[in-house]
């Protein structure tokens, strides 16, 4: 890979300062970034490591909200997000144990890989992405494949998840990468049900609003029976056609509801 300057700040303020450099990029675990850099597809002048900043790490629950620091590893979320078991389970199934010890929630959300797990949880939970400058609602945050509302140099310092009454995540793995070929996160709140789908769409994570409506009035797998997820705009590749992914969306939604209920 191309060489770069490595910086490991001890605070968010130092990190923000270091990221002012146009050629600087944040490094938050690097489980996706480093393989990309090995292929010389990415060329940062400086990498600013976020994993040594204590204020970015931790899981805390308070009054119906679970807050996770941006540089918290998947392994730590899996172990400590007991207030939101579906989220802990999702984190405990990302990649493999070694990847979970390095990869972070902030890194995953900032990258917004269309097949990543976390975006579906954030969107289905109506989470708030907290950065060093503002708070962004999940509905506004995800803006298509590998695209988010983050500005250059903006750091995810934390994510606030309203804890649901019931929730479940179902991942159907792509056979090679083990990312989500399709994943569905269902979360039931007092004011309604949210369903977010990852892995399936050319536009990245999205909400299946028809299922949300049906499940908000009847939270049972049967409620989804009459619905059909549209294959329009879904990904077609060597691991599955758009029609196959559309089928998975429905099957996984039903399974998530059944598992949650």
């Amino acid at each position: 890979m191309y060489n770069f300057e490595f910086v490991k700040p001890g605070s968010v303020a130092e990190a923000v300062a270091a990221l002012k450099d146009e050629e600087a990029q944040p490094l938050s675990g690097g489980q996706t970034l480093i393989p990309t850099m090995k292929q010389r597809l990415n060329m940062p002048g400086t990498l600013v490591s976020l994993t040594g900043i204590p204020e970015l790490v931790g899981v805390s629950a308070d009054g119906g909200t679970l807050t996770i620091g941006g540089a918290t590893t998947h392994a730590q979320v899996a172990a400590e997000a007991t207030a939101y078991p579906a989220l802990a389970a999702l984190a405990g199934n990302i990649g493999d144990p070694a990847v979970r010890n390095r990869g972070t929630i902030g890194g995953s959300l900032a990258n917004n890989d269309p097949a990543a797990c976390y975006p579906s949880a954030a969107l289905a939970s109506g989470a708030t992405i907290v950065t060093n400058v503002r708070e962004i609602a999940a509905d506004d945050y995800f803006q298509g494949m590998f695209t988010t509302a983050l500005d250059e140099g903006e750091i995810i310092t934390g994510v606030k998840f309203p804890t649901p009454e019931k929730a479940n995540y179902q991942k159907f793995e792509q056979p090679a990468s083990r990312f989500a070929l399709t994943g569905v996160f269902v979360a039931k709140y007092a004011d309604g049900v949210r369903v977010a789908v990852t892995g399936a769409s050319e536009e990245g994570v999205f909400r299946w609003t028809e299922a949300e409506a049906a499940l908000s009035s009847n939270f049972s797998a049967d409620a989804v029976d009459g619905l059909t997820a549209s294959a329009d705009g879904l990904i077609g590749d060597l691991h599955g056609t758009p029609e196959y992914r559309a089928n998975l969306i429905k099957v996984l939604t039903k399974r998530a509801v059944a598992a949650a209920a």
Binding site: P175, A176, S177, R178, D237, L238, H239
Partner: peptide, 13 residues
């Protein structure tokens, strides 16, 4: 080649 790494060429695990 569409299956040029373990990300797309599925190895038995």
């Amino acid at each position: 080649l569409l299956t040029g790494s373990f990300m797309d060429y599925a190895m038995p695990r």
